[in-house]
């Protein structure tokens, strides 16, 4: 039971991390430096609680803020480049952060940072955070900024000509993504009681990307589902022991062939939403407001 709970807790943290990848991804920015932002949040919040005795919640928020500030600074050069080059820049960034942490004695250097106060309600905090992000992402979806994010992601030149300040939009998305990653890192650190630079290597950043692509890139439910499912599936595959990672890999390949748009698409969410409102009153006219396809 304890084991299952710990897996579910880690899944919650992974959901937060997948969302942190997803937000800049919406504007077409692929970042594989999210583990770097996560480690900044983890170390910053750990310093707050372990060294300065701050309470958990403000410490985690400070961790998020630190990551956001670094994200903002990194975002400025990152805006000028696209695609594969941005990928490399964020990859390099993640590694730099890791190497810096390895060399700072104040936070334990390569030996790691022990003695971080344990948060026994991490499960609640993680999923509480996820819930807040669900509300926020849902608000974003039907808002001025949300439309701008999507527009920039789909065709940034056109977006700029019709009056979207793409520099601002991308910078906001990138640093907000870093903020979310920092929050994830803070929660992670106080669950593990111990962090070391190796926990935040680039493979983790790639994992967050995989969660998102697998779950679906059209709407934020995709990364949420992807992170949850892909954290749990390897655990359920334990019965075949040494073959489970192969099966996991095969599953990903199969998924990309059968359903390249990801597990959860915009249409599936709309169908569910419509069904929901049909069941629980509210006239359908209200449901067919923007972003909805009628009778398709």
């Amino acid at each position: 039971m304890d084991y299952l709970l710990s897996v579910i807790t880690i899944a919650g943290i992974n959901i937060i991390m997948a969302l942190s990848f997803y937000l800049p991804f919406m504007t077409g920015q692929i970042s594989i430096g999210q583990a770097g932002f996560m480690s900044i949040g983890a170390y910053a919040s750990a310093i707050c609680t372990a060294k300065f005795g701050l309470p958990y919640v403000p410490a985690v928020l400070i961790g998020g803020m630190c990551a956001a500030i670094v994200g903002f600074i990194l975002g400025i050069p990152a805006l000028r480049i696209k695609g594969i080059y941005l990928l490399l820049l964020t990859l390099g960034f993640g590694e730099i952060v890791r190497v810096v942490f390895i060399n700072v004695d104040y936070i334990g250097a390569a030996a790691g940072f022990p003695g971080i106060p344990y948060q026994e309600h991490t499960l609640l905090y993680a999923y509480g955070t996820v819930l807040i992000f669900i509300v926020l992402f849902n608000r974003l979806r039907k808002s001025r900024m949300g439309r701008a994010l999507q527009a920039v992601g789909s065709d940034e030149d056109t977006a700029e000509v019709i009056g979207v300040n793409i520099t601002a939009v991308k910078l906001i998305a990138f640093s907000s993504g870093a903020f979310i990653a920092g929050i994830g890192g803070g929660i992670f650190a106080h669950y593990q009681e111990y962090v070391e630079p190796l926990m935040f290597d680039v493979m983790h950043s790639v994992e967050f990307l995989v969660f998102t692509i697998f779950g679906g890139i059209q709407i934020f439910w995709g990364p949420i589902f992807g992170a949850f499912a892909l954290t749990l599936i390897p655990e359920f595959l334990r019965f075949i022991q040494e073959w489970r990672m192969e099966l996991y890999g095969a599953l990903l390949i199969l998924m990309m062939i059968v359903r390249p748009q990801g597990f959860i698409s915009l249409d599936s969410v709309k169908t569910l939403e419509n069904a929901f409102w049909r069941l629980f009153g509210k006239n359908t006219a209200a449901v067919l407001s923007p972003g909805q396809t009628e009778g398709k």
Partner: peptide, 30 residues
């Protein structure tokens, strides 16, 4: 050059982007 995967209404609403001001934080925290 439309934003193909967005609805017609959303496409037209995007035109108002430069004349409106609501930013990210104000959207999120109402």
């Amino acid at each position: 050059r439309l934003f193909g995967h967005m609805s017609v209404l959303e496409n037209v609403m995007l035109g108002s982007h430069c004349k409106t001001r609501t930013g990210l934080l104000k959207t999120l925290f109402r």
